[in-house]
């Protein structure tokens, strides 16, 4: 299941997460982000949440975190592990490519 990430719950859900988490930085006015949405939803459903989680952050509503991470282009996907950024992916990509990048960080 996809987790809605906001500036308020970012520390709790992402930085303190016991498993790696991919955060999708998106906005409703971003066409390529919207095109990625079904892919994110599908991955969130098919991947084992006890190994890796998926969150989505609307940068329009939660701009603080996006700014803190220097995001200047969306969609951007960041994988966090043990509270640290371990991988950043800029721009749209295919489902299998994104899945492969996520699986790399699963212990």
């Amino acid at each position: 299941m996809k987790i809605e990430i906001t500036d308020d719950n970012f520390a709790e859900e992402v930085l303190k997460s016991s498993v790696p988490i991919l955060v999708d930085f998106w906005a409703p006015w971003c066409g390529p982000c919207r095109a990625m949405n079904p892919i994110i939803e599908a991955l969130a459903d098919e991947m084992d949440a006890s190994q890796i989680k998926i969150g989505a952050m609307n940068v329009d509503e939660s701009g603080e975190t996006a700014q803190k991470f220097g995001i200047m282009s969306i969609p951007t996907f960041i994988i966090f592990k043990d509270g640290q950024e371990v991988e950043r992916i800029g721009g749209s990509l295919e489902k299998d490519a994104l899945k492969a990048k996520m699986l790399k960080h699963v212990a």
Binding site: A27, W29, C30, G31, P32, C33, V59, D60, A66, G70, I71, M72, S73, I74, P75, T76, G90, G91
Partner: peptide
């Protein structure tokens, strides 16, 4: 790219 160079004004204008 993604650090000030953008291929999508509608996506990234917000950050400028």
């Amino acid at each position: 790219y993604g650090k000030g160079v953008s291929a999508c004004a509608t996506c990234d204008g917000f950050f400028f």
